[in-house]
């Protein structure tokens, strides 16, 4: 099997450093400490004679949420610095004169960056599996978590790659990718909240005779929100209630059964589609010939606009 040369080189560089081995060790030690602390709280420090075995599941949820947060934090840092870092080190130009296509460079960089994060996640699976000693979570749940982590890594990583290809410096690229991630996670959630509140306020102050305004459209925005995908998965694993059904009712409407029954699959599909879009954009930004053409056109169109406005003024 032919390995992407950029991926091969990056993995060699990253894995070679002792820093990475130490990171894996410390990360797992931290997870073990949290897991043992959780078990201690739920099973040994009992205030009464009753032991709540669902505490093990709570520990599991805490651990996987911590891992998801780590992915959301580390992936933009790794990916946003990848191409911009090559540019800063003046190694990108040489790479672009080789037969490597921009998309191959982008894929190689993305895969190497998220491989590091996924290696951290996979290394921690034995720690997470501690919950199997008590029960409440099965192998399918764990595999679903792994799937979510992979998709979230790809999605957030593609945002980082796009920022990295667009901007020349690693720091602004990192800031931009966190900014986009904030929009994707924060703004979508806030929009849902604002839409719901506005609809209720509108009903109570203006139209109390009719029905609550249907704002389920806002709920669809959450399909692109990886944090909500994670939250929905945790809820579906830990509770028998359908979160989407509850949200749909809260937004005063009814979503099609496709979304109510298969929200997880739909959100995964949407986020993978967006991943492809961001990667396509990253490859375009990286292509020196397309990049210059675009800049030139923008300048030209600005000049044209200026001229046109000048003509009008004149």
């Amino acid at each position: 099997m032919k390995i992407n040369p950029v991926y091969g080189k990056e993995i060699k560089l990253r894995v070679r450093s002792v820093k990475f081995a130490i990171t894996i060790l410390l990360f797992n030690l931290a997870l073990i400490a949290i897991a043992l602390f959780g078990f201690e709280i739920f099973f040994n420090v009992s205030m009464n004679s009753r032991i709540d075995y669902s505490g093990a599941v709570t520990v599991y949820f805490i651990l996987i949420c911590l891992e998801a947060a780590m992915v959301a934090f580390l992936v933009p840092v790794f990916t946003a610095g990848s191409i911009a870092g090559e540019r800063e080190k003046q190694t990108l130009e040489i790479l672009l004169t080789t037969v490597l296509k921009p998309m191959q460079i982008v894929i190689g960089k993305l895969m190497s960056s998220i491989s590091m994060v996924l290696l951290l996640v996979f290394s921690s699976l034995p720690v997470i599996s501690i919950v199997f000693t008590i029960g409440g979570i099965n192998m399918a749940n764990l595999l679903q978590f792994v799937l979510v982590i992979i998709v979230i890594s790809l999605f957030i990583g593609s945002i980082g790659m796009c920022s990295s290809a667009l901007l020349k410096k690693a720091v602004p690229a990192t800031v931009l990718s966190f900014g986009i991630l904030m929009i994707v996670c924060g703004v979508t959630a806030i929009t849902v909240f604002v839409a719901n509140t506005s609809a209720n306020m509108y009903y109570h102050s203006v139209n109390s005779a009719g029905a609550y305004p249907d704002v389920t459209w806002a709920g669809y925005l959450l399909l692109i929100n990886p944090a909500f995908t994670m939250f929905e998965m945790v809820m579906s694993q830990g509770s028998s209630e359908n979160l989407i059904q509850i949200m749909s009712s809260g937004l005063n409407g009814t979503m099609p059964s496709l979304f109510i029954d298969y929200w997880f699959e739909c959100s995964i599909a949407v986020q993978l589609a967006l991943t492809c879009l961001f990667l396509f954009l990253a490859a375009r930004f990286l292509d020196p010939l397309r990049r210059k053409e675009k800049a030139r056109k923008t300048k030209k169109s600005k000049k044209k606009k200026k001229k046109e406005s000048g003509d009008v003024d004149g």
């Binding site: 080190k89 040489i94 080789t98």
Partner: peptide, 21 residues
């Protein structure tokens, strides 16, 4: 002006570019 990759040996640097082809 060009840069090089840290943590790569000279032979590995060459082999990386060879692998591209």
């Amino acid at each position: 002006f060009f840069g090089v990759y840290d943590n790569l040996k000279a032979i590995e640097y060459m082999e990386f570019y060879a692998s591209i082809y």
